[in-house]
Computed example of a mutant assay.
Amino acid sequence: MEKKNDTSDFILLGLFKHTRSHLFLFIVILTIAIASLMGNILMILLIHRDHRLHTPMYILLSQLSLMDLMLVVTIVPKMASGFLTGKKSISPAGCGLQIFFLLTLGGGECFLLAAMSYDRYVAVCHPLRYPILMNWPLCLKMTMGSWFLGAADGLLQAVTALSFPFCNTHEINHFFCEAPMLVRLACADTSVFENAMYICCVLMLLVPFSLILTSYSFIVAAVIRMRSTETHKKTFATCSSHLAVVGLFYGAAIFIYMTPKSYRSANHDKVVSAFYTIFTPVLNPLIYSLRNNEVKEAWKRWLGKCANLKPQ
């Protein structure tokens, strides 16, 4: 089979066509992406500025917002420029960087959500020992470990995926570079890499998810033993935000990486990918703002300070 030069650019077919209805959808998604950027930036600034939120729980939340922020920046600018200018090509280096950042952020978020569930387990089940069991050195190790494990997975898959020779067809039926889509264009046997990639993705999803389930099993058992209705409500308010974020993230990720290809179409993959790369990042700060009393109080304090700074 004839091969092209490996340095040839890839073509991202994109999410939208140039029709009136797709133009409307593009504007909606671009608006959501901008709202996501603003929401996550504000969440990071709020946690940074309010000393009452300088606890492991909210430091981990600020890292979640940072990951969501970077995820949108990795995907949306290229997608938007491709739609507006018609230039859908992406260099191999640009494609590799997208794969690296997507897997770094996706994998990192898996382990970060597991760390957040452990934080909630300690807060509910061992409140008196919280400063000891969830200390700052451990919080830092959890944060750095999440970034490191995600980056290791991203670097390995990006380098390996780009090491294959590619055939004449350089078209990727997606709006961003993704390792599974890229290896389909290879002119070599990629079965070993695809199987290894599948196992790696399953482990990156299931290991943190198992830790989350274990943490919440202990939390539920502790809540059942509590007799105070007020304590039940407070515990539910504390944990419900995190559970909602976990449900959104893992629902989309499991569909993408663990559902057999025969049950999915390219368009379905694009829709679900848009959900977890664009829609979920805007929902996370909203969930924590609306369902967390401490965050709501912090917003009120910040808005009050801003109002006092206005000239009378």
Rank of each mutant, 00 (worst) to 15 (best):
T55F: 01
T55Q: 11
T55C: 03
T55P: 03
M57L: 11
M57P: 02
M57W: 06
M57N: 11
Y58F: 15
I59P: 01
I59K: 12
I59V: 11
L60F: 11
L60M: 13
L60D: 00
L61K: 05
S62C: 03
S62V: 05
S62A: 15
Q63Y: 02
Q63F: 08
L64T: 12
S65E: 05
S65N: 06
S65C: 11
L66H: 04
L66W: 08
L66V: 08
L66P: 04
M67Q: 08
M67G: 12
M67Y: 13
D68Q: 09
D68V: 00
L69W: 14
L69G: 05
L69I: 07
L69H: 13
M70A: 10
M70I: 07
M70N: 02
V72F: 09
V73E: 06
T74Q: 10
V76Y: 07
V76K: 00
V76Q: 09
P77I: 14
P77A: 12
K78I: 13
M79G: 01
M79W: 06
M79N: 01
M79Y: 01
M79C: 04
S81H: 12
G82R: 12
F83I: 00
F83C: 03
L84V: 15
L84E: 08
T85E: 13
T85R: 08
K88L: 07
K88M: 07
K88R: 15
S89E: 15
I90F: 11
I90G: 01
S91Y: 14
S91G: 09
P92W: 11
P92S: 09
A93K: 11
A93H: 07
A93Y: 09
C95M: 05
C95Y: 01
G96W: 05
G96C: 12
G96D: 07
L97D: 05
Q98W: 13
Q98I: 08
I99P: 06
F101N: 02
F101Q: 06
F101G: 01
F101S: 09
L102W: 12
L103G: 04
L103S: 13
L103T: 12
L103I: 12
L103K: 12
